[in-house]
Simulated scan of single mutants.
Amino acid sequence: MADTVKWGILGAAKFAREHMGPAIHSAAGAELYALATSSPEKAAPFQAFAPGLRRHDSYEALLADPEVEAVYIPLPNHLHVEWTLKALAAGKHVLCEKPMAMRAGDYDALISARDTSGLLAAEAYMILHHPQWQRVHEMVQAGEVGAVQHVSGRFSFDNRADTGNIRNRAETGGGALRDIGVYVFGSARFVMGAEAQDISAQIRWENGIDVQSHVQARLGGATYSAYVSTRMHPFQEMVFHGERGLIRLTAPFNPRVFGEARIELHRAAHVGGGQVLEERFPQADHYRLQVEAFGRSLRDGAAYPCPLEFSRGTQEMMDQVFAVARDL
């Protein structure tokens, strides 16, 4: 077995072209080997940064290529389960964009196919590979701010003008929660090591998709509140508020696009005053780190940081939000 993992991408999606394609190409131990698209024009930007990239005219042709070892799937949400199962059946390891499934129960077939095949299948939940999130998990679990009493999350942008975007279409599994709710849900679950209980929510709907939501819950010993929206000014933040301090992430979800990845640790220094300590991560690329972690799992047997069981838990929380939500 070669040390380098040869990757194929199903479809010439914009996100794959701008983020994951370059990440695979630049990652240690990875080669962007093939792309499935019937359009030479759509393949050209990929071939510009990955010379020699092989183009297949169909997804099936790429899955039949014996040189392709791992497949990245950036297709619309409603196609993720279908093509993940097809790729596993073809003997390929799979990294699929989030949300990997539309309902928590859909993960059961993916987990079964993964276990039966002995292949690695995972959701492309890139933030868990970023050192800022690994550091926050370490800080909270070590009690650096005492017992966390409240967790809050915010993530918003405005894409109302982009009416043809798959995120604005119900038939392709669009909506704010599936697109960005996974971040404010999953990151809190990861850091706290707990599942949400006593969930309540409010959702504003537009043409069959959720465009804004506010969620409240209990997460371990803490209360939890978060909002996401695809109809508000861009903003993102996560805060873990403890008895003896506070941890704030200023660009938790897409650092280097929204801003520099930075952790603020707020702690009381003395009566009437305090201190803010900062840790910065200006160069970390969580997309590349994700590809490299995937490769280490294949080559060295290292535990993958975001297994399907974790992703299923986030989807289960989302399912509960949809089930209990009132109109906003």
Rank of each mutant, 00 (worst) to 15 (best):
L128F: 12
T230G: 06
Y227F: 12
Q275G: 12
R218M: 04
M1D: 14
A113I: 09
Q320W: 04
K42S: 15
V257F: 12
V148K: 02
E69F: 00
G220L: 10
E31W: 07
V81G: 08
T4K: 15
E279P: 07
E264Q: 15
L246Q: 15
G29S: 14
R135K: 15
L308G: 01
E237W: 01
T37P: 12
Y72R: 06
Y107Q: 05
V276W: 00
I209N: 03
A34F: 00
K92Y: 04
R17E: 07
Y72C: 09
A217C: 01
D106A: 09
R231S: 03
K98T: 04
V271S: 13
V5N: 01
Q132H: 09
E41A: 13
L289V: 00
A12F: 04
S156G: 04
R280E: 13
Y287S: 08
F240S: 11
A2G: 07
A194Y: 10
A12H: 02
E60S: 05
A23H: 08
L110Q: 05
G221K: 08
R262Y: 00
A36K: 07
R248A: 12
F185Q: 07
N77L: 07
A70P: 13
C306W: 11
R244M: 08
E243M: 05
G295P: 03
Y304H: 15
M100I: 14
Y125Q: 05
D106F: 01
E260W: 08
G295C: 04
H137Y: 12
L249M: 12
L10C: 08
L298A: 04
V321S: 02
M1T: 13
S156C: 10
E123I: 10
